[in-house]
Design a protein around this nucleic acid. Structure first.
Lengths: 99, 99
DNA sequence: TTAATACATGCATATATTTGAATATACTAT
DNA sequence: ATAGTATATTCAAATATATGCATGTATTAA
């Protein structure tokens, strides 16, 4: 099992997912979805007090990077966390606040 | 214990740490330090095949954000991971590669 | 089919991050 | 003091990311 030469694609994939979560509003979205596992866009952007378009952009990033999934429910789109491990990361990071 | 209103400072702190790790070369650095817990800058930048200045920048980011610590050893500066939990995050992210 | 609601997308601008070349600083040995 | 080694810093250019406005699309109800 070699590991010495660095696999840039794999590193970029991991980095990309970390950057997806690495934004205050996106962490806030994940937090909200931790409390309430399925939320629509309106509830999210009003809950955060941001523009609808801004929430939509953030949600798209989180979905594209595999953090969230979405499904339509009538007029609404319900978002939820794809992999529970990802919300543990937030906890982990917070636990590391050691200065 | 209130949690409804979002604590932007705390969110930004967590996001900032995630972004610190969210770069291919910086993940590679953490990986290297997982194998060999103390490394100097020269060994790191040659191992990664990047510029010395680039490595220095990345190391500074990781140090500033509390991911790494450094100590001088003669002419060299030895870097190491500050909190082991942070390297678990990488594993965690990689485990989430589920497409 | 029209109107209203719920989201998404395109675009422009603003801001942040990355990179490398050049240069500066710190330490060691002579 | 000087030279060599190891690392940091500064700066500019390139690239990436964020934000908001305007507009587009999908769904429902009348």
């Amino acid at each position: 099992m070699k590991k010495s030469v660095l696999n840039v694609a794999k590193l970029e994939a991991a980095a990309s997912k970390l950057r997806a979560i690495g934004h205050p509003m996106r962490i806030a979205i994940i937090d909200m979805l931790n409390d309430e596992p399925q939320m629509n866009v309106t509830k999210i952007y009003k809950g955060l007090g941001i523009e609808q378009a801004s929430a939509s952009h953030h949600l798209n990033i989180l979905k594209t990077k595999g953090v969230l999934i979405s499904k339509r429910d009538g007029k609404k789109i319900l978002y939820s966390i794809k992999n529970a491990a990802l919300s543990e990361i937030i906890d982990c990071i917070n636990r590391c606040s050691d200065y």
